[in-house]
Design a protein around this nucleic acid. Structure first.
Length: 747
RNA sequence: GGGCGAUUAGCUCAGUUGGUAGAGCAACGCUUUUACACAGCGAAGGUCAGAGGUUCGAGUCCUCUAUCGCCCACCA
């Protein structure tokens, strides 16, 4: 109560100059300031060059924004990415580098299409086949446009100083040219081929997916042990009896004494009232100890079995499951067109009936599901397009794509932060198989291959459609979304055109992204860039961790625990959100966001606001720089700040933003405010010291505000606008294009 | 099964090349002093998971153990 009375009294007696309100209110300034920067063109390096900030002796600096998927709104992970990149970009710009940050969004093919399909199914009960290709695409594009607009609004709200005039989309016209050009080149170099091979088929999404898009889930299932028939000498074990009508062999370990005598023999059997032919083969990948030590080989429905069939030249690979996960069997057969789960029971009861079932055992099994649709993956042989990762490439010195991916990391041409991720990177490359790039969905880059209608074997691959188009038919499939995002660093700069941007800004300086897409995306960017232009895409990879909620859970739509960055901005200001996201967050490690933390940095914004109020209302008017008029004591104090500044600058140069931010925070609050300002209250009363101290406070204030600008762009710019009355600066410009302070010690 | 990481104050986490342990929040005492109560001053809180080793010196480097987490593989 007494507190409230005191507070009211204080408000009435307020004698602080009116230029700055008593407390900082972010909403009063943020939107206005962003608009000011954007309209003045300060995000565009071509404009910044005219301000005199750019030092031509310094190298250009460039970043491309990892394009967010147009599948909805940005979450805190994106917010962290944008913050880190914006801090770096603002810093480099202030350092006088010709700085470019290209924004953009990703069409995210399968993710976007399945999102829209789900919505349509839910609201209208229609499938994509009910709508047809054209109508579905129209709907997806509309959704993508809306998502895009939301995303851009969010990015602007956070203060992202990227050059909107160069914005790109992975599916726009220019990027399409880049995609088709790379596809054509790869095809002509023999790296892209079409082959019937076993792929991960998602029966729910009706498309193939890559190995990386599979999520394994542990489930309980039954391991059945049985014989195909009475005349067959070996029992086998399987969790999928329904696939066994597609078996062509039984594989045993070459040194397994139990089965030695059968190796090489062939049996014609009747299994589930169907004729099957089984050859006994020896393969050393078979485990003697698992089940009966004998593996029924089903080439068409198991990746491992397909590979075994390859090794043993088994050409008969009957497909017994179709694209809808239903059994293919002769008309009238009891398994015909049955779902796999149903068929499993039918096969088991057939085995029981015939007395062939030997055992059942409950086992835990990891089952592959599709990341986007959560459909259970059904391995199927399909005619698909692949990229060969092992073939030597003539124009790249006979190196394979695998080698091109490995080399720059190995030779330290690309630095990875944190560096321990290089180990997982190499491990991934070592296990990499040919990349299946075709997808049976409609939204995305359609494969630039046309087949002659009257002659199946004749095909055309090109950037533009063939002449006499009516005689040709385009491949109905689209490309894996990572194909186009793999080109991102150079497609955004105009490639295949040899633009001045491309010459000036490529390779980019840093790629800042989440570690969870190291394989999906980062590796593929290195692959594509090394192949297409023979350059690295970026010099540094900065991997941030996952932003989790207060309880350490991943933020997701299904949990409903996501925080909208806009909401943070409204309640605490974008600056506070930015600081909370980067301080105390080392690269590569996950972080938790709590409102308390954000609140702490809202208080910090208010603190520097009031530091400014104090300085402006207490010092005598000074012009700076004016270090020669400092007394020895004040030179020493300034010298300490300059040492701190030097440390902060080094941290930023080495991308240790969390360290830079923390040191700056600590200096401003606990040294500048708590010590220097407190002691200044007395010192300023001393006429002999007043002038010097005024210069000191003005100098430290302007330099700390400048240094803080990349971290908290809004509050610092708002302060900057208001310091003129007492502090006169030569050639004052908006803070965003003000030069970074030098850390030379005062003489 | 293979790999990677983590273990530091009540909670959430920093700690750059080895040199006297830090922040935010929470909690405690005092202060309402014209920059800020979104504050100030002060105090409190940690054998840095455990054990061993290297070193003049270890949170930091090495070995082992325990617990937790993540990634990759997929035993059919």
């Amino acid at each position: 109560m007494t507190h409230i009375l005191w507070y009211i009294t204080k408000m009435e007696n307020n004698s602080i100059p009116e230029i700055l309100t008593k407390s900082y209110n972010p909403t009063e300034h943020e939107t206005r300031l962003y608009k000011m920067w954007e309209e003045a063109g300060y995000f565009n390096p071509d404009t910044v060059k005219n301000t005199g900030l750019v030092n031509e002796s310094k190298d250009p600096f460039s970043i491309v924004l990892p394009p967010p998927n147009v599948t909805g709104i940005l979450h805190m992970g994106h917010a962290m990415m944008i913050t880190v990149e914006d801090i770096i970009v603002r810093y480099k710009r202030m350092q006088g580098h010709d700085t470019l940050w290209i924004p953009g969004t990703d069409h995210a093919a399968i993710a976007t299409q399945s999102k829209v399909e789900k919505d349509i199914q839910k609201k209208e009960g229609k499938s994509r086949y009910d709508l047809g290709r054209e109508e579905l695409l129209r709907r997806v594009e509309q959704f993508a446009q809306e998502s895009h607009d939301t995303i851009i609004t969010q990015m602007k709200a956070m203060g992202a100083s990227c050059d909107w005039s160069r914005e790109a989309f992975t599916l726009d016209e220019k990027r399409t040219v880049a995609v088709r050009t790379v596809f054509k080149n790869m095809y002509e170099d023999g790296l892209i081929y079409r082959k019937n091979r076993i792929v991960n088929w998602d029966p729910k999404g009706q498309t193939t997916i890559s190995d990386d898009e599979i999520v394994y889930e542990e489930r309980e299932s039954v391991l059945y042990t049985f014989k195909y028939s009475e005349d067959f000498p070996i029992a086998i074990s399987t969790t999928r009896p329904e696939t066994k009508i597609g078996d062509v062999a039984v594989a045993v370990h070459p040194e397994d004494e139990r089965y030695q005598k059968y190796i090489g023999k062939e049996y014609n059997l009747n299994f589930c009232d169907l004729p099957i032919s089984i050859k006994i083969i020896a393969d050393d990948t078979v485990l003697k100890d698992f089940g009966t030590g004998a593996l029924g080989v089903t080439p068409a429905h198991s990746i491992i079995d397909w590979e075994i069939a390859d090794r043993h030249n088994l050409s008969n690979r009957p497909q017994v499951i179709n694209e809808y996960a239903k059994i293919i069997a002769p008309e009238g057969h009891f398994l015909q067109n049955k779902k796999t789960t149903e068929a499993r029971e039918l096969v088991v009861s057939w085995l029981k009936e015939k007395g062939l079932l030997i055992g059942e055992e409950r086992v835990k099994q990891n089952i592959g599901t599709a990341e986007r649709t959560s459909g259970i993956i059904e391995p199927l042989p399909k005619l698909q397009w692949f990229i060969d990762v092992n073939k030597p490439i003539e124009k790249r010195g006979g190196k394979s794509l695998k080698e091109l991916m490995r080399e720059p990391i190995e030779n330290d041409n690309i630095e990875m932060i944190p560096d321990y991720f290089t180990k997982t990177y190499f491990h991934w490359i070592d296990n990499l198989k040919d990349w299946c790039i075709s997808r049976q969905i409609w939204y995305g880059h359609r494969i630039p291959v046309w087949y002659k209608k009257d002659s199946i074997s004749e095909l055309y691959v090109g950037v533009n459609p063939p002449e006499n188009l009516e005689l040709w038919e385009q491949d109905p499939d689209t490309l894996d979304t990572w194909f186009s995002s793999g080109l991102w660093t150079f497609s955004t700069l105009g490639w295949p055109e040899q633009t001045s941007d491309l010459k000036r800004y490529h390779p980019t300086n840093i790629l800042e992204t989440g570690y969870e897409i190291l394989f999906f995306w980062v590796a593929r960017m290195i692959l594509m860039t090394q192949y297409a232009i023979g350059e690295i895409p970026f010099k540094t990879i900065y991997l941030h961790g996952t932003v989790r909620d207060g309880q350490g859970r991943k933020m997701s739509k299904s949990l409903g625990n996501g925080i909208d960055p806009i909401d943070i901005k409204d309640r605490y200001g974008a600056d506070a959100g930015r600081m909370a996201l980067i301080i105390g967050t080392a690269p590569g490690t996950d972080s938790k966001v709590s409102e308390d933390k954000i609140k702490g940095y809202k208080n910090f914004a208010n603190k520097i606001w009031n530091i400014t109020r104090f300085v402006l209302s207490s010092i005598e008017p000074v012009s700076i720089p004016n270090e020669s008029n400092l007394n020895d004591d004040d030179k020493k104090v300034l010298g300490e700040w300059r040492e701190q500044l030097s440390s902060i600058t080094t941290h930023i140069e080495k991308y240790r933003l969390y360290m830079a931010g923390e040191e700056l925070y600590h200096y401003i609050w606990h040294t500048f405010a708590d010590k220097i300002i407190e002691e200044s209250k007395d010192i300023l009363k001393d006429e002999n010291k007043r002038k010097s101290r005024s210069i000191l406070l003005a100098t430290i204030l302007t330099e700390t505000i400048t240094t803080l600008h990349p971290f908290m762009p809004f509050v610092t710019e708002a302060i900057w606008e208001n310091i003129d009355g007492q502090i006169l600066l030569d050639n004052k410009k908006p803070l965003i294009i003000t030069q970074w302070p030098t850390h030379t010690l005062p003489q």
